[in-house]
Amino acid sequence: MVPLSWYLVVAAALFCIGLYGALARRNGVAVLMGVELMLNAVNLNLVAFWRYVAPHDLAGQVFAIFVITVAAAEAAVGLAILLAIYRSRETVNVEEIDEMKG
């Protein structure tokens, strides 16, 4: 059986890729995709820990399902916002979107 650390390494790598994407990409859709990757890295961690540490509880799986749900909602809302921004500003470049500047 594959040891737990492998999963964790994969999840960490995935998280870093996602983080990089979220921080460095200029396209708003890509940023959302990075966030999605980070969330899924977390899911991976949750499921792995459930399987290796507490297989008799359902907590890990339930958590993962919740995260997936929330991620779906987040993606929907994020894409809707991006769509709305695109309609009004003709761009999805996050560098240019600074309406909230103080």
Binding site: A22, A24, V31, V94, I97, D98, K101, G102
Partner: peptide, 11 residues
């Protein structure tokens, strides 16, 4: 001063 931190950029 604090205003400067509020760039409005999500990243």
């Amino acid at each position: 001063g604090l205003r400067l931190t509020q760039t409005g950029r999500v990243q």
